[in-house]
Design a binder for these strands. Structure first.
Ligand SMILES: [Zn+2]
Ligand SMILES: [Zn+2]
Ligand SMILES: [Zn+2]
Ligand SMILES: [Zn+2]
Lengths: 135, 135
DNA sequence: TTACATAGTGTTATATTATAACAAATTTTA
DNA sequence: TAAAATTTGTTATAATATAACACTATGTAA
């Protein structure tokens, strides 16, 4: 019969917070999330941070390190957050997850001269997005 | 006679903080720096953060975003922090600036499918360093 | 089904990281 | 030298994140 774990299901708080991030068009910060979910009974920072930690760990969301904010994963290929890349607009703050197989392969195969073997990478590109350039 | 600005010189606080970071073998956090330089008269967070901001801006140091910590630039090629890459050991926390011309060129030339032109990138690789692997 | 283990929750308090705001001093430029 | 720009010193506070502890819910296996 094999494994019957609830492998892919989220707990109540995890689901609430994932839904919020997933439907957002922009990265959300922890305390913005906290404020938004207070009506649903999530009232304290640890509740938010624990859910965020778990969601990051399982690859459902990613942390944009340069912004201390979180986005839902839009890329089924970035298996458990081992290989993430984002484009970030310095004007409107828009963040877009980059899904580029060649880039991903190139970086996953990159070997450090000093012999360190990498398990994971995170890449953040910065620029001005198309929309902002027009304005 | 051309420009006579003090283009490359650092102010007193900037120099003190740069020296500290530059001689450190590991990334330093802002409040660790603050504690270390109190004997030199730098007593409050804004003094540290202002110097750090300026040093980052001029490319003398880089911020390791995933650690909220700062390292001195070891790579004359990463011109004003436009193209930075680091290897980070998840065991001993060691950080090493990667200086790889091919990698840098590849990423600097990378074009987003959605047409965004990048001005800058930051790449962080994670793994276990040689030294930690032996232990 | 019962007990054991694991994961998740609620809560209070506190630690860590970073900035706002304002006055004064210094350095650069004109 | 006077104006402009940068740097400094200072106090207060904002924003981000974790420690610790008691409790509940869920999954596993005898
Ligand atoms: Zn993803
Ligand atoms: Zn934009
Ligand atoms: Zn550098
Ligand atoms: Zn190591």
């Amino acid at each position: 019969m094999g494994k019957m774990y609830k492998e892919n299901s989220l707990s109540k708080n995890q689901q609430i917070i994932f839904d919020l991030i997933n439907k957002s068009s922009e990265p959300l910060k922890a305390y913005t999330i906290l404020f938004s979910v207070q009506k649903k009974g999530i009232k304290a920072p640890p509740q938010v941070y624990r859910a965020l930690d778990k969601l990051v760990e399982t690859g459902k969301i990613h942390k944009i390190e340069s912004k201390n904010a979180f986005v839902a994963c839009r890329n089924s290929n970035c298996e458990i957050s081992k290989a993430t890349a984002f484009s970030i607009c310095e004007s409107c703050e828009m963040v877009d997850e980059i899904s580029d197989t060649k880039l991903s392969k190139y970086l996953s195969g990159f070997n450090h001269k000093k012999g360190m073997k990498f398990k994971r990478f995170n890449l953040e590109f910065f620029g001005i997005c198309k929309k902002c350039k027009k304005d």
